[in-house]
């Protein structure tokens, strides 16, 4: 079974606290909305304290359309992606020459050649590297990317796979869209990237083992979350049902997954959860009947850097690894995203 040897992270250098961002948003909102205090309360309710942005704040007004925003995404995604992969490889004690496969997940920009291809040049990865760019999984992409990389390593147990997630959510923000979903998104989502180095069974790299993975798709829930692709770019689709999905499905799905591996929820020492937002984290805590502080690393990540879509769960995995969970204990990595769907990864620390 695959092992998770290291996680690296990288952020664009522009960090803004929520008050600074709010001041700029209030000026913009005033062009259409009357009760700005209500919108500010909506922003504050997501409990994000600050976020990294791909560009300096003043540069966003210059992005006149999808081409300009996506062009900036391609530039910054390469920088953030390169830094995250270098950090993860260094942490694992490996070099670019050791990498056999590169999985790249994102939902915030498109490129051909894809970012993984461009990183072969920038990082000096071997020409043999198998690339798997994955677009469109959204918030579930970090956990699903880990699962797909672990699946790959079953077939190639002597290989090293790198999963890279880069999300520059701020470059998808539609300035003219002053709907409630976009107002929530503009308060919640941040930018950055994370990379995970995984080794196949025969590589025997140190680190937690991926014991099993599970994908769960919820039929006929396409409208819960996603993008509407417009001339201006990616416009957020976000329904109030997202926390309900966790409340309705997660306990049953986690229990069934664990039961197939002879486990129950009380045997899980550590939960690594994607921080969709406060309502989602509360719904997960409730659905899984967890202690109030069980998802604290997810809450902290949400406060410090916002929801970074597929990247977030990997940051929380890194924080969890740094706290060195007791060896031999079990952990579950859990995320939900557009589809609507869940991805579960069972690990042994």
């Amino acid at each position: 079974m695959a092992s998770i040897a290291a996680v690296g992270r990288a952020f664009p250098p522009n960090y803004y606290d929520q008050d600074t961002l709010l001041a700029a948003f209030r000026t913009h909102w005033a062009t259409r909305h009357f009760n700005l205090d209500r919108l500010e309360a909506l922003h504050r309710n997501v409990l994000v304290g600050g976020r990294h942005l791909a560009l300096p704040m003043e540069d966003y007004a210059k992005l006149t359309g999808f081409g300009a925003a996506n062009g900036a995404w391609i530039e910054v995604a390469q920088e953030v992606g390169e830094a995250a992969v270098r950090a993860a490889l260094a942490e694992a004690g490996l070099t670019p020459a050791d990498v056999d496969a590169l999985f790249f997940v994102t939902v915030t920009g498109v490129a051909t050649p894809s970012i993984d291809a461009r990183l072969i040049n920038r990082l000096g990865l071997p020409a043999r590297v198998k690339r798997v760019p994955i677009f469109g999984l959204g918030c579930v992409g970090g956990a699903a990317g880990l699962a797909r990389a672990a699946d790959y390593l079953k077939a190639f147990p002597d290989h090293v796979a790198v999963l890279l997630s880069v999300e520059l959510c701020s470059l998808t923000l539609q300035r003219d869209d002053l709907s409630v979903p976009n107002l929530i998104a503009s308060g919640l989502f941040g930018d950055g990237g994370a990379a995970v180095v995984l080794g196949g069974r025969r590589r025997d790299l140190p680190g937690p083992r991926v014991l099993a993975t599970r994908s769960i798709f919820y039929p006929d829930t396409e409208g819960v979350m996603g993008w509407e692709v417009t001339d201006g770019g990616f416009k957020i689709v976000l329904s109030a049902e997202v926390p309900d999905m966790a409340r309705r499905f997660l306990r049953h799905d986690v229990d069934a997954f664990l039961a197939d591996h002879g486990l129950t929820r009380d045997r899980i020492s550590t939960w690594v959860a994607h921080p969709g937002g406060p309502k989602v984290l509360l719904a997960m805590t409730e659905a899984l009947e967890l202690q109030e502080d069980a998802l604290e690393p997810a809450w902290r990540s949400l406060r410090e850097v916002g929801n970074m879509s597929s990247t977030s769960v990997l940051l929380i995995l890194q924080d969890t690894l740094r706290r060195r969970p007791a060896a031999g204990g079990y952990g579950v990595i859990v995320a939900m995203g557009p589809g609507f769907c869940s991805e579960l990864v069972l690990v042994r620390w």
């Binding site: 009357f34 209500r38 409630v180 109030a240």
Partner: peptide
């Protein structure tokens, strides 16, 4: 109306009538 639609309704009524609920 779910929570997002209720919020949309409140915001748009505040815009239209220039009031604060």
């Amino acid at each position: 109306l779910d929570s997002i639609k209720l919020l949309t309704l409140a915001i748009e009524l505040e815009n239209r009538f220039r009031i604060r609920l």
